[in-house]
Design a protein around this nucleic acid. Structure first.
Lengths: 207, 207
DNA sequence: GGCATATGTTGCCGCTGTCAACATTATTTG
DNA sequence: CAAATAATGTTGACAGCGGCAACATATGCC
């Protein structure tokens, strides 16, 4: 039952996920087809159904994997930071770097309906958000932000960085991927500076 | 030739667009099907091809219509503002209001590849962005922002508001639609305040 | 009235997601 | 170690989709 050992096609589930990631990057969500994934994995068009409930289930798995990569990208960027404020900005940089590097992946991660999916997907998303939240709390501890619930600050930071990434991917910004990543620095500074000099917004007391 | 008068089915093109908008709002991009649009308009599954080159062409037309509605929503919100800074914040509010009210529409507007589409689509998008850009310039004239190219400021403002809207639509924010719109106020203030107290970022000199 | 053209329909094609039935391989169990 | 059982993969089918071609009909122009 819990034997993860290879059967006919050694660890097909991972092969399918890998093929799916590549296909998504090449063809985008439109050209992403379950049958093509199976073709690339060298199995029949119905083999994926032994590992994923349906197409959406595969997409959710890819989204979860994407959130893990996003988390890793932010953590890698953070490592080079000195101050907490610095690290928060670098987290945003890591976010945008991942986004412009895997634009189609980001679509799947955020277009998928968040509710009613596998817990793996939800948890991976939480972990990514937690990086930002931790960064915010560190800045608060450093005195760079008002005390209180860190969530509103995290939402603003997330929104700014996410919006920049999405607009860049949509080709609506007047600069290319490299400059977009550079521009993230200014964006982070502006957002952080603004929140630092404004009173804490009470409303969102969520957990 | 230029006769827009009814033929068999008085002004089918508009009927199709209307049916398409409703279907999109109900079923989302996944359930959006050309044949269902035709069904709702009471015509055969191939009638739409006399008015739209293909499915993407219909989507582009809907996107253009969406940008017009977005522009209208921002302009309506702006009308109530006193200062230029106030009006800029209200524009963001109008943006988010439109987004949470027509979430599926926003997907089509920004997921569609911006390049290679009909000029109508590109122009409608430009007009929407112009509202933000004008707002930024007004704030600059008021002395609320550093002088110089307004584009970087507009990009930051756009990114923040767009990101908030997208995250809200994806169900990833800890508050509902109404509170999201309210939260836009704080977001705008923070962004504007931050940019006001930072030197002008030179890089994006685009036009 | 007659003709070209714009508009709408029918029929078809390959493709897709998904189900059911069958085949094969691994695991368990006596 | 062999038989039973579960896990995994294949084949075949179905309806629905986007899109093309051929056909039918309405409209405007002369």
């Amino acid at each position: 039952m819990q034997a993860k050992r290879p059967y006919h096609h050694a660890n097909l589930k991972q092969s399918l996920l890998g093929a799916a990631v590549h296909l998504l990057a090449e063809a985008g969500p439109q050209g992403f087809t379950l049958r093509e994934v199976a073709r690339r994995a060298g199995v029949s068009h119905n083999a994926p159904y032994r590992h994923f409930k349906d197409k959406d289930d595969l997409l959710a798995a890819m989204a979860a994997e994407g959130f893990d990569r996003l988390t890793a990208s932010m953590n890698a960027a953070i490592a080079e930071g000195d101050s907490a404020a610095d690290r928060l900005g670098l987290a945003g940089r890591g976010y945008v770097e991942f986004a412009v590097g895997s634009p189609q992946h980001l679509v799947v991660m955020f277009e998928t309906t968040v509710a009613g999916c596998s817990p793996k997907y939800a948890e991976a998303g939480m972990r990514a958000f937690q990086v930002l939240l931790n960064g915010i709390e560190a800045v608060q501890a450093e005195g760079g932000l008002p005390e209180g619930d860190p969530h509103p600050f995290a939402v603003v930071a997330w929104a700014a960085v996410h919006g920049l990434a999405k607009l860049a991917i949509a080709g609506r910004l007047p600069f290319d991927a490299t400059r977009t990543v550079q521009f993230t620095n200014y964006l982070s500074q502006a957002v952080l500076h603004g929140m630092a000099n404004l009173p804490h917004p009470l409303p969102p007391t969520a957990g």
